[in-house]
Amino acid sequence: MQVWKMNGAGNAFAIFDARQQGFAPSPDKIREIAAEMKADQVMSIEADEGATAFLRIWNSSGEEVGACGNGTRAVAHLLLEESGVDEVRIRTAADLLRGLRADNGLVTVDMGRPIMEWERIPLSEKMDVRGVDVRIGPMDKPYLAKPAVVSMGNPHAVFFVEDVDAYDIPAIGPLIEWHPLFPEGTNVGFAQIIDRETIRLRVWERGAGLTKACGTGACAALVCAARANKTERRAKLILDGGELIIDWQRSDDHVLMTGPVELEMTFDV
């Protein structure tokens, strides 16, 4: 079985080619692979009769999840290079996504429409998703409050802050990740609006911790920012590991994510 170590804007992945043989690791094995390969997510490419491939995704903590934007871009790159075509279709547990070649060696994934209905994100109770009742700090004067929430195939809570580097994200992230409002947990974004076309973003990923980049997190931040009229519907997202361009299209409401991918190594097991 071929294995690739890749990253997308610094978001690191261990990718197994399971199209010809089974790959059913236990949660302990996933944690072992992630630690050994220093991967934020472990993924397997599997055969799918209705798409180019099925992509199975595990966070480094061992649980299987439905979406990983940068990981999907990395796998799209592998499939595009393997086939020589300009578009591939990748099925995940969350959706059927399109991967496309972009200019300058970049890769685009059409992440579909954002999910904004509270029960589908999901939340444990009905709330206005533009600012839910979550607070960090004293109840009468919290230093973080009212994150916007959205799902990009996985749930995200986005705080808009003046200075993203002023917060102890490893300390704050776990408090939000498994807050009772999020029955399936949530990713936690800290977004600083630079201008209407630029966002600085750091993300505490559900089941992975603070990562150098999070593709679905970048999509979520842009959607929440544009919905609040803080930015345009297309912006550059500056993450710790690199930059992504997120375009929330007016024509069909789909979110396109474009960015770099890097192959670090490949080997057989």
Score class of each variant (00 low, 15 high):
residue 100 L to D: 06
residue 15 I to T: 04
residue 86 D to Q: 12
residue 56 R to I: 05
residue 80 L to V: 08
residue 172 I to E: 09
residue 5 K to R: 12
residue 26 S to K: 05
residue 93 A to Y: 02
residue 167 Y to P: 03
residue 34 A to Q: 05
residue 188 V to G: 01
residue 131 G to I: 08
residue 260 P to I: 05
residue 75 V to D: 00
residue 187 N to H: 04
residue 156 H to C: 00
residue 68 C to F: 02
residue 105 G to F: 07
residue 189 G to A: 14
residue 251 S to D: 15
residue 226 A to H: 11
residue 156 H to E: 00
residue 150 V to F: 01
residue 253 D to I: 00
residue 124 S to K: 02
residue 20 Q to S: 15
residue 221 A to G: 07
residue 216 T to W: 10
residue 115 I to Y: 02
residue 212 K to P: 08
residue 140 D to N: 10
residue 196 R to P: 10
residue 5 K to H: 07
residue 96 L to S: 08
residue 102 A to E: 15
residue 53 A to D: 13
residue 214 C to N: 10
residue 176 I to D: 05
residue 117 E to L: 08
residue 143 Y to G: 02
residue 162 E to S: 07
residue 84 G to Q: 10
residue 143 Y to K: 01
residue 186 T to D: 09
residue 18 A to G: 02
residue 120 R to S: 03
residue 52 T to P: 06
residue 207 G to L: 00
residue 86 D to E: 14
residue 166 A to L: 12
residue 238 I to W: 00
residue 75 V to L: 03
residue 261 V to P: 02
residue 50 G to N: 13
residue 76 A to C: 03
residue 113 R to S: 13
residue 98 R to G: 14
residue 117 E to A: 15
residue 240 D to M: 13
residue 151 S to P: 08
residue 180 P to S: 07
residue 269 V to N: 10
residue 106 L to W: 09
residue 228 A to L: 13
residue 160 F to E: 03
residue 171 A to C: 11
residue 26 S to H: 00
residue 131 G to R: 04
residue 119 E to L: 00
residue 179 H to D: 04
residue 30 I to R: 03
residue 186 T to L: 09
residue 186 T to S: 12
residue 77 H to T: 14
residue 245 I to N: 10
residue 20 Q to A: 12
residue 197 E to M: 08
residue 150 V to R: 01
residue 120 R to M: 04
residue 199 I to A: 10
residue 205 E to M: 05
residue 76 A to T: 00
residue 26 S to A: 06
residue 160 F to S: 03
residue 228 A to W: 01
residue 170 P to T: 10
residue 126 K to I: 03
residue 143 Y to W: 04
residue 20 Q to G: 13
residue 76 A to V: 10
residue 198 T to M: 11
residue 90 I to Q: 08
residue 261 V to Y: 06
residue 147 P to F: 01
residue 263 L to H: 12
residue 176 I to S: 06
residue 216 T to F: 12
residue 111 M to E: 12
residue 97 L to K: 13
residue 173 G to D: 08
residue 256 L to A: 07
residue 47 A to D: 14
residue 55 L to M: 11
residue 32 E to T: 11
